[in-house]
Computed example of a mutant assay.
Amino acid sequence: MPPRRAPARAGKHEPRVRGAADGDATRQRLIEVALDHFGRRGFEATSTRTIAQQARANISAILYHFGGKHGLYIAVAEHIADFIGSRVAPLRIQIEAALANGSVDADGAVRLVEAAVARMTALMAEPQTEAFARFIVREQQEPTEAFAVIYDRVMGVMLPLLRHLVAIATHDDPASETAGVRTITIVGQLLVFRVARAAVLRQMAWQEVGPSQVQAITAIVQRSARAMLLTARAENTT
């Protein structure tokens, strides 16, 4: 009979676990505060001291967790990419599987594009994406290493998949300019509701983009995308 092990000493590893958890929480607070500041003020105008104060952390924590201001900026971009990537992952996996086994016909491609529209509209209505949009718009205007992080992990993954679906739906070549423009046009119809949020709310007399607004946006953009794809298919088959 194997010897009985002595009972574990209560709390033996608690300080280390608690310390790691506290460190993770501090790191996350720094990222969330930095996201707001970088998005509103840009990299140069943002004060790391202010970020640390608002995150209830010592300024040395930025050096410890990120190696400095630039590392914090890149960590914010990674946070955005990870969040969006997790939200679109089920749809991405579904599209990749369908394309890999060759089971997508033209009508199926249209339905998957419509599913992508629904997923992206719901994502843009999430409160966190307001701060994301400010950061991303700045990077769109003056791209840095942070833009490469977001593009490579999210945009550069999803856009080619959507472009492939658009090409299948319209009997086109995925590498063609027309397939690319149609894909960007569909995505652009959704992005305006996030990047031009103030104008949209005022024009529509909405107080917010809530569930009913998301439903309306999704339905109309889906119909618009379907009409464009079916029209293009008819043109390409004549």
Rank of each mutant, 00 (worst) to 15 (best):
V157P: 10
Q94I: 02
H171N: 10
I74T: 07
N101A: 13
G108K: 01
V192I: 09
L165S: 01
A52L: 12
V104W: 02
A109D: 00
A199F: 04
H164P: 00
E96T: 10
A25H: 12
V157R: 12
T129G: 04
A55I: 04
T50K: 14
A21Q: 14
V104I: 11
R5C: 06
A199W: 03
Q53V: 13
P160F: 13
L201G: 13
A199S: 13
T183H: 13
R163N: 10
V104R: 03
T185M: 08
A175V: 03
R27Y: 05
T237R: 13
R163D: 00
H70G: 14
V117S: 11
F83R: 06
R134S: 09
Q140R: 05
R226M: 01
T185P: 00
V187N: 03
Q94F: 01
R29P: 04
Q140H: 12
G11L: 09
R153P: 00
L159I: 12
E14W: 14
P211L: 11
R226N: 01
E126K: 05
I59C: 04
G210C: 02
R16C: 06
A115Q: 08
A8S: 12
R119C: 12
V166A: 07
R202W: 04
V17K: 11
I93P: 01
D82R: 09
Y64D: 04
E177C: 02
G180H: 14
T183C: 15
I150K: 01
M204W: 08
E44G: 09
D24S: 14
R87W: 04
V149H: 02
R49V: 05
R16A: 14
R27V: 12
Q203N: 14
A98W: 02
P15S: 13
A179T: 03
V137Q: 15
T26F: 02
R202M: 05
M158I: 09
A100W: 07
E96K: 12
R182I: 13
A148H: 06
E130P: 00
A55Y: 03
T231M: 01
Q128P: 03
R226P: 00
A81K: 02
T170E: 00
G23S: 09
R223A: 11
G68S: 11
Q28M: 14
I184K: 09
M158Q: 13
A21P: 01
S86K: 04
A148E: 12
Q53F: 14
R233Q: 07
L230C: 01
Y73A: 09
A131D: 15
A106C: 05
A45G: 07
S86F: 04
G71T: 10
D82Q: 08
D24E: 15
R163L: 03
